[in-house]
Write a protein that binds this DNA or RNA. Structure first.
Lengths: 216, 216
DNA sequence: GCGTAACGTTACGCCCGGGTAGGTATGCTG
DNA sequence: CAGCATACCTACCCGGGCGTAACGTTACGC
């Protein structure tokens, strides 16, 4: 009927893939994996369903693609935040801070995806892999901090400790997504307090605080 | 065709309901909510599908029933474990210990159900309700421990702290279900160590330990 | 200007699984 | 033994949603 106003169509593949991944993340996070339909994702991306299949493949592959993108984003940001030479608490601090910043920036996209993937059997492995890397990083950090501090703990003890810390972080990340007005930096500080000082000292009035003034 | 060997059938309603709930929990935990089919649940219970619908209602209602049963079991056990008069660390210890015992006993049933319910929109509310009660309990405990200890923290600060603790506990519970040979009591102790003493003191060799010998 | 390949669409096949209609056996009460 | 409620089954309907076949259309090289 009309050749006029093809408007904004016929985009190169790379761009469309980005759009589709964005839409997918959005819809998956809103609806959850199963409730999300490929039709809705396609519609959200302003494209028709077969396009999605042509570019990103099946629903499972699509979700996996989202997952990987977000996982690498998070791990890279966190990994990039630690400065190797610094003392243990400062390293931990920078990691924690970066983590909460990413989550706060990505609320819609990230934490909900993260909440999704656990327990969905095809994806649990992927997520737990990422989690394992996180735990590994923290374990290494703790191990390094211990040498020369006179402490002694087995590898598994350190690992358990790391699991507790990571779990605490995730929990606070969840809490943050439910409280959009919460300040990431403040939350990160509180996380450091409980993780580093422990409940005991915290309750008797001790506080940990970032030593140098932080930007933002 | 045969009136012989009616064998083990025709059980009273209450018994069948228990069986069905058990089967449902088992299948839901194995497959996840969506992948679990009512047919499989019925088969696992040794009964045909319409029976399940007759007794427990729709799939959603069935899952909710499982959820509530496990949630109340957990909260009651934990709540029953704390002894009001005791010092804060011992109260926390007993709660933590009870929590890990329940999880360890129920691996198959519980934690996986718990992993399931987050992010499944119809059920997230239920779960977060239970979680909120847990946080509330811990917050109250912390608040009580603080008065007379010279510390001062706002309510939300305590709440955040409680969230971190609960998250750490959940994380270790997950870890335990993936390591079936782990000892609940030992895990609970390690949890106490990191939660109560903090990473700092732990790494320098300090340890917390249950004061009196525990049964088991 | 014309072939061809990439971009894009409409419409459909089809299976899986939630939910139900209608019918059968068994035990209890008189 | 008549009647009735309860426990239980076989067989079916039907919709939603994944994945695809077959078909247009715009750009770009030659």
């Amino acid at each position: 009927m009309l050749t006029s106003v093809p408007a904004f169509k016929r985009l190169p593949r790379a761009v469309r893939e980005r759009q589709m991944l964005d839409s997918a993340a959005r819809v998956f996070s809103r609806r959850g994996y199963h409730a999300a339909s490929m039709d809705e994702i396609a519609e959200d991306a302003g494209v028709s369903k077969p396009m999605v299949y042509a570019y990103l493949g099946t629903k499972e592959e699509l979700f996996l693609a989202c997952l990987r993108r977000e996982a690498t984003r998070l791990t890279e940001v966190v990994a990039g935040a630690v400065e190797p030479g610094a003392p243990a608490d400062r390293q931990l601090w920078h990691g924690v801070r970066a983590f909460f910043d990413v989550v706060a920036t990505n609320r819609e996209g990230w934490t909900v995806l993260y909440r999704q993937a656990r327990g969905l059997e095809p994806f649990a492995a992927e997520l737990s892999g990422m989690r394992a890397r996180m735990v590994q990083v923290v374990t290494a950090l703790l191990s390094a901090a211990m040498t020369g501090s006179g402490g002694e703990a087995t590898d598994t003890e350190l690992e358990v400790m790391a699991h507790a810390l990571v779990g605490a972080g995730e929990s606070l990340a969840d809490w943050m997504t439910d409280h959009p007005d919460a300040d990431p930096a403040k939350t990160a500080t509180q996380m450091m307090n409980v993780a580093w000082l422990g409940a005991d000292r915290l309750l008797t009035g001790a506080t940990w605080h970032p030593g140098v003034t932080e930007a933002g």
